[in-house]
């Protein structure tokens, strides 16, 4: 069903692990592999560019340059020769998020190889998400957790950076450690959330909810239709007229 090659469509040659196949020019690498006859098990996940299962590297004849892309997001080009890298061994440090500090010591203790970075920028060039990988690694080396978290936010953890790093750093696992440190310790806490949790636990809404649960469908429909709707363009501090059920 996914392979809907238009019969009139132009076919282009691609080389899957060195082997030539002719595939419709409009397909992504992923669909082109299926068109060629592969049933994917490894190297296929969300098919939507977010899970990082289908990291792919390719080259063109006559060019020294190594190109990268997610197979589900990259359209085939004539004469590309490619392979997927569905898995690459990586280091993952075990840590207790409750007991770590948002500081450079945490990063270096868990991933000492962070300091081996050669600043060759190969990681950045290998990122299919156009993330400034070397820059976030540099932020990590400075202990700038905020910058590390922000710069790495779009990472899909496909591992292509790690597969090419001459310093043998596992960038994406350092990145998630950085983001979790940021989310837990650096970003200001949501006070309204903590206070709502306290209210719920004290049972503040218990009676009104139980009442709703026992209400007949007609009454529910009336209550539903009469809800006061927060204006879409209203600001953070809008409050409703009826505060009975707050």
């Amino acid at each position: 069903m996914e392979v809907e090659a238009n019969k009139k469509e132009e076919l282009v040659p691609i080389f899957i692990m060195g082997k030539r196949y002719e595939v419709p020019a409009s397909l992504t690498i992923q669909k082109a592999m299926e068109y060629a006859g592969y049933q994917l098990i490894r190297g296929c996940g969300c098919r939507g560019g977010i899970c990082g299962a289908c990291g792919t590297v390719y080259r063109f004849p006559g060019s020294y340059k190594i190109e990268v892309g997610l197979a589900c997001q990259t359209v085939v080009q004539p004469d590309m020769y490619l392979t997927q890298i569905p898995f690459f061994p990586a280091t993952k440090s075990i840590y207790d998020i409750e007991k770590v500090k948002p500081a450079i010591e945490t990063l270096v203790k868990n991933y000492p190889e962070l300091l081996r970075c050669l600043q060759c920028n190969t990681c950045t060039k290998s990122c299919p998400m156009d993330i400034e990988v070397m820059d976030y690694i540099a932020a990590g080396m400075r202990g700038d957790i905020t910058r590390l978290a922000e710069l790495s936010f779009d990472c899909v953890m496909c591992g292509l950076c790690t597969s090419r790093c001459p310093a043998e750093i596992c960038q994406y696992n350092i990145a998630i450690l950085g983001r979790r440190l940021y989310g837990k310790y650096v970003a200001p806490r949501a006070e309204h959330l903590a206070s709502m949790v306290r209210e719920v636990e004290k049972g503040k809404y218990e009676q009104m909810l139980r009442q709703l649960m026992d209400t007949d469908e007609e009454t529910l429909k009336n209550l539903y239709s009469a809800r006061e709707i927060e204006p879409e363009q209203g600001d953070e501090y809008w409050t409703p007229k009826d505060k009975t059920y707050l």
Binding site: L193, Y205, T239
Partner: peptide
């Protein structure tokens, strides 16, 4: 989560 305008109700 915002008790000034919303609730589980």
């Amino acid at each position: 989560t915002k008790g000034t305008k919303d609730s589980p109700y």
